[in-house]
Design a protein around this nucleic acid. Structure first.
Length: 198
DNA sequence: ACGCTGATGAAG
DNA sequence: TTCATCAGCGTT
């Protein structure tokens, strides 16, 4: 047997500058444990939302009931609801008390393709997980996971088997926001078909 | 290019 | 209490 046991990312991984975490999450793997299945995906696109001078960050105008999770411990899950339809998956970063988070924008499926197709109600491979709301539908992630620590019991992040070289990670402007578009805080793997927008 | 959808938070 | 806003998706 050559399969290595997956190494779960420690809390200290997330307790750093949000930009560094967003960049280093590219290539890491998420395992979603649900209904006796373990769906494994590889992160291919992220965005950083910063504690300071970032008008697009939910916490840019101070703490509210919704964004309070971002002020909590790093490595926790922040899921919020948007556009009347969609859930978004984020991981909290920075020290407790400092509000930062990384939005997971796209992932690449590594197993359970048929289950993901069913969850997404489509057969088109490149549409399965190529967007922040698509991947939460594919992995059945919703607000019940909000404010929870990472755990292999339901959702955890692991060291990736294939980490892109620095030259394979593209850094550009963020997508889908009105303010803060001048900042290059979006990261994605070059030439990966599951990236949401090229 | 647009409609769907409803939680959120700021204003009054 | 109202109202504009919104880290998207799917169909046209």
């Amino acid at each position: 047997m050559k399969t290595k046991k997956p190494v779960q990312l420690k809390q200290s991984f997330f307790c750093r500058d949000t930009r560094v975490v967003a960049k280093e999450l590219i290539g890491m793997e998420i395992i979603r444990n649900i209904e006796n299945k373990k769906i494994k995906v590889r992160i291919v696109e992220t965005e950083a939302y910063l504690p300071k001078d970032d008008p697009a960050c939910h916490a840019s105008r101070g703490m509210t009931p919704r964004n309070s999770v971002m002020y909590g411990p790093p490595g926790h899950i922040y899921v919020y609801f948007i556009y009347g339809n969609y859930e978004m998956l984020n991981f909290v970063t920075e020290n407790e008390g400092i509000p930062g988070a990384v939005l997971i924008r796209a992932v690449e499926p590594m197993n359970e393709i048929n289950l993901i197709k069913k969850n997404r109600n489509t057969e088109v491979l490149k549409n399965l997980t190529s967007g922040p709301a698509k991947l939460t539908m594919a992995l059945k992630i919703n607000r019940t996971l909000n404010n929870r620590p990472l755990s292999k019991e339901y959702l955890a992040v692991y060291q990736g088997e294939k980490i892109p070289k620095a030259s394979e990670i593209i850094q550009t402007k963020r997508i889908g926001i009105r303010e803060g578009t001048n900042l290059d805080l979006r990261f994605y793997e070059k030439n990966n078909p599951y990236v949401s927008v090229l």
